[in-house]
Design a protein around this nucleic acid. Structure first.
Lengths: 155, 155
DNA sequence: GAAGATTGAGGCTTCAATCTTC
DNA sequence: GAAGATTGAAGCCTCAATCTTC
């Protein structure tokens, strides 16, 4: 019986992934890797909201892959910053609808610019001929991660 | 004036990176993506300690890229689990030396196996011809991240 | 009863202040 | 005074329990 994937390859993947996460500062969620004084998830939420007209809080939770309780508090923060509006609409009365305010749209644009700078700097340090491969690799990894979910509950 | 890297590429990198982080569950540090009931950093610390004879707490902090206060509490946890021993040695009396216990070595081996399974599953879902590219891409990204550090302190 | 949302408790991380040792 | 380590306060995230609406 031959292994499809060698142990060494798996270890190498794990090692490189851990190294990148730490090197890029992804293990500290309360600061954007871009240096902006905004938590990662808040910036991500703004990006999601700026792409659409409005979103249900539940829909935002799915996009961010966070717990509904986390999203609830996250949205409260965004409202306190004046970036998001919460509202009810006709129809299902359980749903909470979210919209960017004018200030929210401006903040989203600024964060987007900061992101572009940060990630542009990252890309600039990459050999140009490797850039498409890096993008493709990340996409493949995401698809692979979605296909093979967390292993299982312990018996 | 021509941009070396297009805004779109930067945005694409950002988007793919965020997608992968969320899809793989890297935004929740208190559970290993492998499903083991061990925080990510504890597993990482065990892996680092199993590779050497002994390590200073400060050296471990550098390898994990965590704050010294975090490492202090992290090590206390590992000691409570019976996996690590803290000790003083002749010479610099400020240094705290860390060593794996027998149980710690066994735990490290088990976690390593679980990691191999998890990441092997990830790799198995990747087109075989893409696997070397993915590994190389992660390595390039890490080097790039280390070369272009966080943008700056705000004025 | 189920789904959406909120509130409370606990864990991981950072920053700041303090203590010890060089 | 500086470097290593610990302790205290605050933020982000999950899990569990609760409330509202379907």
């Amino acid at each position: 019986m031959v292994e499809l994937v060698s142990i060494d390859d798996a270890a190498a993947l794990q090692q490189r992934l851990a190294a990148f996460v730490r090197a890029f500062g992804l293990h500290q969620p309360d600061r954007t890797p871009c240096g902006e004084p905004v938590p990662v998830s808040e910036a991500y939420a703004l990006a999601e909201l700026s792409g659409v007209d409005a979103l249900t809080q539940s829909a935002l939770k799915d996009r961010l892959r966070l717990e509904k309780s986390t999203v609830s508090r996250l949205v409260t923060q965004l409202i306190n910053r004046g970036w998001v509006r919460r509202s009810k609409r006709d129809g299902d009365g359980r749903l909470v609808w979210l919209e960017l305010t004018g200030a929210g749209r401006r903040a989203a644009a600024e964060l987007s610019a900061a992101r572009a700078t940060r990630f542009g700097g990252l890309l600039a340090n990459l050999p140009p001929d490797q850039r498409p491969a890096v993008l493709a690799a990340l996409e493949s990894l995401t698809r692979a991660a979605e296909t093979s979910p967390t292993p299982a509950e312990p018996a």
